[in-house]
């Protein structure tokens, strides 16, 4: 009789092992980067331009470039993504068109990031003649994070109980008034979460900006949105593969800043989500 239970114990042991094989390395990665990267962080590293062919100085232009890119991406993607989510949650009916839109979103989310880079190069840099610029990069990143924003916003909108909509309509409000005054305000935490996750994704991606914006070595701040810019993830790539003899501390420091930026955004998103779930009144 003990046989099935022995099998179960062995099986559960392997399941646990599989889980640890994922979770432990994740912890190790974070620990290594924090341990080796944190000592590199100081005012000069964060606020100075890179010097001596990126072997010294700081990473300020890369930080600023990433902030510009991410801001641009969100300015482009949030309105479109939010309206698309409103369409899916409030207006669409179960038909072929809706099915097609959902399929398109899934595909947009699955397109390899380097293909977005190609697309941005062909459309924005070459066809629209924006050149390699913050504008081209932002638009490329914006399209890339569109599915994240649509999916998260749609979930948030759909989680608003339909009874609220009925009450609002029964009081003589129009459909748009109902969306604007009842549905949207109650979906904001979820939309915010999705937006921040999109921001984190845009901040960490390298491949889409390789040919649309990134400057290999540009030790100054960008002047306008038609200017090239450095960006944190690309900078990390450059100093860890393209430039010999970069101090290890600089590499880890850059990795730390990038990781911290992305993780802080994710943590904020998670905090908003959990807080909202607890506070939910219905």
């Amino acid at each position: 009789m003990s046989h099935p239970h022995r099998t179960q114990n062995i099986a559960f042991f392997f399941l646990l092992l599989a889980t640890l094989l994922i979770v432990v390395p994740v912890g190790l990665i974070v620990v290594i980067i924090v341990q080796k990267g944190l000592p590199a962080i100081n005012g000069q590293f964060l606020l100075d331009i890179p010097r001596q062919g990126m072997r010294a100085g700081g990473i300020f232009p890369a930080i600023v470039g990433t902030v510009y890119l991410v801001t641009g991406a969100i300015i482009f993607a949030l309105p479109i993504g939010l309206l698309a989510a409103i369409y899916l949650s409030e207006y669409s009916r179960e038909n072929m068109l809706t099915r097609l839109i959902k399929l398109a979103i899934v595909n947009l989310a699955g397109v390899p990031s380097v293909v977005y880079g190609l697309f941005g190069l062909a459309l924005f840099v070459v066809f629209f003649k924006f050149g390699a610029s913050i504008l081209s990069g932002s638009l490329t990143l914006g399209i890339m994070i569109l599915p994240i924003i649509i999916t998260a916003s749609r979930e948030a909108l759909e989680s608003v109980p339909s009874s609220f909509r009925e009450v609002s309509l029964s009081l003589g409000a129009s459909k748009w008034q109902t969306i604007r005054h009842i549905v949207l305000p109650n979906a904001i935490p979820g939309i915010l979460t999705g937006t921040i996750l999109g921001l984190g994704r845009a901040a960490g991606e390298t491949a889409p900006i390789l040919f649309t914006v990134a400057a290999f070595y540009l030790p100054r701040l960008p002047h306008s949105i038609f200017d090239q810019a450095m960006a944190l993830p690309y900078h990390l790539y450059v100093i860890s593969t393209q430039v010999p003899n970069v101090d290890e501390k600089t590499r880890y420091g850059t990795a730390f800043v990038l990781l911290a930026l992305v993780l802080v955004m994710n943590i904020i998103a998670v905090v908003i989500r959990t807080k909202f779930r607890k506070k939910k009144k219905w």
């Binding site: 009874s163 609220f164 009925e166 009450v167 609002s168 029964s170 009081l171 009842i182 305000p185 109650n186 009144k281 219905w282």
Partner: peptide, 12 residues
């Protein structure tokens, strides 16, 4: 034509 629903449904 106003309506009052089965359950009390205050708006948030």
């Amino acid at each position: 034509i106003g309506m009052v629903f089965a359950l009390p449904l205050p708006l948030p």
